[in-house]
Design a protein around this nucleic acid. Structure first.
Lengths: 186, 186
DNA sequence: GTCTATAGACTGATAGAC
DNA sequence: GTCTATCAGTCTATAGAC
């Protein structure tokens, strides 16, 4: 495998488990099997690594949402798949999805990284708004008054539920927090 | 003011704005106006400071919930006051409440701190469950199927909404995300 | 593209005087 | 309880050989 990719993989794992500021180039070097200095060839400064991570993540997530849109028909089915994506990212409660991790530690990031992060949030809300509107139209989601507010609430719920699950090192707070959301779907 | 209190105040401000691992004893010393070494007299190691922070926060929050219980009558009024507490903590979107901040950076903490954190979450859910049940009984909250799941969802929503507001440095994601929650209250 | 070697800054923490 | 002085360890980052 490509060294750059191996570095991104290792960094993503570390960032999701321990936070972006909690791993060092030394950790990365140990994990990937090269020397610290070699990492700087691929990511001159750590901000480049942060940007590389969020960039790849946003691209992958965007693909995943497109896949969900193509695979499922009803609004409810798509929202269940979206929920499952966040649930899977938790694993056994030991890691967050990268965007929650980076949202939480946002102070160490420079403008370009924050822009990507906020763009990701906006894209998510836009996708959710569309899917919720479809769910209203096809009658597979109940209890919605404003689709865009509901979309923002859904994203906040997923991210918050991840945070609590991780604090407890258990999936159950996530499942309990998202139960009512799932119950609104046919 | 007590030096210990001044240190806790400064540390809380820093933890909420930049994260617990993002401030140092040097920062604290500068802010409070004493020398680094003196801080170790009050908090021998940084873990003691973490514990002191969450301990004081949990005690204060518990008091605040009791106050809300005593001040307001209906379930809806109490939930609106609870929501306002989280909104106020954000200020202009530049800081998190301490428990979101510490949940986010939980990897740097030892068992006693994590116990306090999880206890805080459990206490919050217990209080919310009770208030939501009251709201069902007095008819001031609608759309609840299971009070305990709704309580966990409410906590996750508040924490997630804070995270998004802070990422955007703006209150509006918080307001949008919690709009539907408020709309369910009479 | 990877290496050795090193710089310079900062970290939490300690010893011991006052 | 606060100070000066200092420690060993870590961090990101760079220079330059191969």
């Amino acid at each position: 495998m490509d060294t750059r990719t191996a570095l991104l993989d290792s960094a993503e794992r570390a960032a999701r488990q321990r936070g972006f500021d909690a791993f060092s180039y030394a950790d990365l070097a140990r994990d990937v099997g090269i020397r610290k200095a070699s990492i700087h060839h691929h990511f001159p400064v750590k901000a480049d690594l942060a940007f590389g991570l969020i960039e790849r993540y946003a691209a992958r997530f965007s693909e995943a949402l497109t896949d969900i849109g193509n695979t499922y028909d009803t609004g409810a089915e798509k929202l269940r798949a979206y929920h499952q994506t966040y649930r899977n990212a938790l694993a056994d409660g030991s890691q967050l999805c990268l965007c929650v991790s980076m949202s939480a530690g946002r102070d160490s990031f420079a403008e370009p990284v924050l822009d990507q992060l906020n763009q990701f949030h906006e894209d998510s809300v836009a996708w959710l708004t569309q899917v919720i509107q479809q769910g209203i139209a096809d009658g597979t989601i109940s209890g919605v008054t404003a689709a865009d507010a509901d979309a923002q609430a859904t994203l906040a719920l997923m991210e918050g539920a991840q945070l609590m699950a991780r604090a407890a090192s258990s999936l159950s707070p996530f499942d309990k927090a998202t139960q009512a959301f799932l119950d609104r779907l046919v």
